[in-house]
Amino acid sequence: MSIKKITFRILRYKPGLIDPPQFQNFSIEVKPDMTILDGLEKIRLEQDTTLMYRHSCHHSSCGTCACKINGTESLACTTKIKDLKSISITLAPLDGFRPIGDLVVDISPLFTNISEDWSYLKNSENVKSSQMPEGIKEFKRFENCIECGACVSACPVTHKNKGFLGPAALAALSNELKKSPPKAEDLLSMAGNKNGERLCERALNCSRVCPTGVYPARHISDLHRVLKQK
């Protein structure tokens, strides 16, 4: 198994200690299939136990490990080191969120405009079953959006206009609209308000960086169309 030496260039930040943030280089030996998250774990265990980054599921379900990898918002857990084809990898926290320490940001503003009343479950698609199991009406599954914040970090509008609902909330709103027609009036009035879809500049960065194929820009266009028809 070939082992390579790679440099992780990590933007370190510790309020009052490493402040303003500055890059620190960590050299590590990596195996072919290691992910960025595996690399971060290795650095924490072998070189600096106080390196701060978020992680939980290691398979792109929780959404905690989003950060900027070589300048682009990605998940550390599913980005393979070898796919970056680079011996130096730059890691920085997401933009537009309050930094807490190293790669960790305060993600809570992401949830300001995503209501807990909006269901996180939807009907499973492409069901090929010719019968349903006893006691189950429809197969359900979690939404694709893992609420990682990558789209919000990549969106040029969210940085200029703090009021903008942003791509994650608008995509969630659009999904809820499809699932709960009785809520349409409230949802559309939210989407159509001064901080709603009208602020989108069609940069499409949100859809480009989304790690789970939510395509928020498509949802925003859908909302735009529905609102125009009203």
Binding site: H55, S56, C57, T64
Partner: peptide, 14 residues
């Protein structure tokens, strides 16, 4: 010591 649920729980197959 790290993020919540970063040890075993979050990595579980569900």
């Amino acid at each position: 010591r790290g993020e919540l649920l970063s040890g075993t729980t979050g990595r579980h197959h569900g």
